[in-house]
Amino acid sequence: MKTAQARLSLAVAALTLVVMVYAGYEARGFRDASMWFPTLVAILGTITALVIIVMDLRTLRRDHPEEDGEERVDAGTLRAFALWMGWFAGLLVLLVALGGVIGVPIWLFAFLRFGSRLSLSFSLGGAVVTTALLLLLSATLDFHLPPGPFGL
């Protein structure tokens, strides 16, 4: 068992424990027929999460971070993860604010040019061709683009 992985696993298990406890508590408000399944899952989940937390804590106590040499999920990795997830969230913001027909080409151009650092012609061409394809799909198939406030 690797320590970096155990550390992350511990965090995920702790979060899952909170979710399971909350789910079990919330399930008390459901009618009988709807209550037992989520309650059962929440109880089993709580127990399993506790088992994993204990196992991960034991691993962390036993192993030294310096001993394993595996790929660490360090601050740099997390920063990169946050950066790219931020770009993804940017598309969502643009779709809500401007709709698909305007939001997609703007986001795609910005991502290719500034996120991926590709040439201006590739970024522009990629955005235009993709938008044209999406419009074609939307016109011919049961494929919907987010309309946005302008209803496009």
């Binding site: 979710v19 399971m20 789910a23 399930a27 027929a33 709807s34 989520p38 899952v41 989940g45």
Partner: peptide
Amino acid sequence: LLAALFGMLLSTVGSAPASPDYRY
């Protein structure tokens, strides 16, 4: 097992099959 249980819990989100309840 915990991953599967978490998946099962997420699958209970929405209208319940057995009674008129909306869960989570």
